[in-house]
């Protein structure tokens, strides 16, 4: 079956990680549907979302993998990190334990993705400032120490959600432009789509790990 030319020139794969109940699926839903889902079911394994965005005049399709947060699911979700160009690492500003676990999430993110994967730290539930348990400054410092981008967001009001997803994409795009992200490398997490050319396929956590040059 012949498919028409693509209306986007890149696909970036994102993963969203973090403790259970921090609002990963709600962030995804807010970003893709532009509304808050109050009665969001928890995720078992993984869910997917996509949205086409524009960076520097280029249409980019974000393919977002939203992972289960419960500890024992990490044995499964670890295999989803592979080939992610961006990782959104989420904690809940009203629950300190979710912040304390960040270093372990970060270790996974570093070890299971490639060195150029952009990691963005999100402090979710910024609308619940009265119940705040983690200050902005300490999280900011944690982010700086570890070279992460950082924003406090609210999946409920939508505050900063757009920015978190877009800034990650901008950074990835910049890495492509200045050559630090090699599209031909295996598992770069980026697929280039010339508008009517053949397709590359180095996307997806399922790849065997063999070198798989992109067709661009």
């Amino acid at each position: 079956m012949a498919a028409g030319p693509y209306n986007y020139s890149y696909i970036f794969k994102y993963i969203i990680i973090g403790d259970m109940g921090v609002g990963k699926s709600c962030l995804l839903h807010q970003f893709t549907e532009k509304k808050f889902m109050a009665d969001c079911p928890h995720t078992i394994g993984v869910e997917f979302g996509t949205r086409i965005i524009e960076v520097a005049g280029q249409k980019i399709k974000l393919q977002i993998w939203d992972t289960a947060g419960q500890e024992r699911f990490r044995a499964v979700t670890r295999s989803y990190y592979r080939g992610a160009a961006g990782a959104l690492m989420v904690y809940d500003i009203t629950r300190r334990t979710t912040y304390n676990h960040l270093s372990s999430w970060l270790t996974d993110a570093r070890n299971l993705t490639n060195p150029n994967t952009v990691i963005f730290l999100i402090g979710n539930k910024s609308d619940l400032d009265a119940q705040r348990d983690v200050t902005y400054d300490e999280a900011k410092q944690f982010a700086e120490e570890n070279g992460l981008m950082f924003l406090e967001c609210s999946a409920k009001t939508g505050e900063n959600v757009e920015d978190a997803f877009l800034d990650t994409a901008k950074k990835i795009y910049k890495n492509i432009q200045d050559g630090s992200l090699d599209l031909n490398a295996a598992e770069s997490g980026v697929q280039h789509k010339p508008s009517n050319g053949p397709r590359g396929a180095n996307l997806g956590g399922e790849s065997s790990g063999n070198k798989d040059p992109c067709s661009c």
Binding site: I44, G45, G204, E206, S207
Partner: peptide, 20 residues
């Protein structure tokens, strides 16, 4: 061929006996 892992969809079927 498309290197899609079946369990991405099916793990949740089995763990929750298809609920939701």
């Amino acid at each position: 061929e498309k290197r899609v892992d079946l369990s991405l969809f099916t793990l949740s079927w089995f763990l929750a006996v298809f609920v939701e």
